[in-house]
Write a protein that binds this DNA or RNA. Structure first.
Lengths: 161, 161
DNA sequence: CGTAGTGTCTATAGCGACTATAGAGTCAAC
DNA sequence: GTTGACTCTATAGTCGCTATAGACACTACG
């Protein structure tokens, strides 16, 4: 018994609009329709959507998922590249963690820079104004500025809600 | 001696278009102009832009930076809320780190799921198809799905390049 | 039978912080 | 005078959704 889009949304934990969006983006095939033009999904659609959501949870972007789906549909070559994809994501995640940990030490330095309750000469503002965030940031290879650069890749592999 | 926009970009490490964007967004005041309508920046603009970039590096979004700048320009109230802002960012960053570390364990499980070199029955694809990513994700409070939710806030405080 | 409430449809615009592109003007050096 | 680097404005694109508007479909209740 086929599902309407709302039921599929409930089962997959994503929103109705997101399902339609995946269809528009070519990740889900155009489903059958009722006489009233309502979308009808079958078991293979349910599985495909779950696959997509799992991939998103693993930080993959839609282009990568499209590739994986194409391979699933027509596994013509070796899957070695999938290993590489996963390795790449692990490396990405490690880089993000390192950057965030560094960022955290910076923020903690900031936190102790001001006692609060001041109308002027707030130590935090001073620090944001003049201080280099920490000694390591004096040189070119500050992890915090690396963090900036890393976010492009990061942005592309983001899951929201 | 005032700077043209390209020189300011070099000094601040951000791009020309980004500077114009900050002006459009009201973070930088409209600068003076040459007869040829080129923007001219003075020392206080340089400082202000550095302040903005440092804040961005600390993961603050443009709305927060606008608030900080307004306070810097007219420090009429206590700066206690700045401490709160920093605390909030630390908590955010901690949440992001936890989510990413969890994501990493998931990806590492995936990595060992397939030896590669297969045309069919790739273990990684199987795992993405059917497996729940890890035992902890069987219940409702999986950190990985928390990761999904956290990214809204995260997205708002992102620095790219 | 009407109607209220929910679900679905399409199309379009908005989010955040930029980034890219087009087409035109400016300036310095050769 | 012409090449190349720089600047200007205005507009559209990025990513993965999310929100909105206006219309149609379906079900339950009186």
């Amino acid at each position: 018994m086929p599902l309407k889009i709302g039921e599929l949304a409930k089962r997959s934990g994503c929103q109705v609009v997101t399902i339609r969006y995946y269809e528009k983006e070519g990740l889900l095939p155009p489903p059958e329709r009722t006489d009233a033009n309502y979308r009808l999904y079958n078991d293979s659609d349910v599985e495909r959507l779950h696959f997509i959501r799992r991939c998103r949870l693993h930080g993959m972007n839609l282009a990568e998922i499209r590739e994986l789906l194409a391979f699933k549909d027509h596994p013509t070559v070796s899957c070695a590249w999938i290993n590489e994809l996963v390795e790449k994501h692990i490396a990405d995640v490690e880089r993000q963690i390192a950057s965030l940990q560094h960022l955290k030490t910076h923020l903690e330095t900031l936190r102790h820079a001001c006692s609060g309750d001041r109308q002027q000469d707030c130590g935090i503002l001073d620090s944001l104004d003049h201080g280099s965030p920490c000694a390591c940031c004096e040189d070119e290879h500050c992890a915090l500025s690396e963090y900036q650069k890393s976010t492009d890749a990061e942005k592309k592999a983001r899951v929201s809600r």
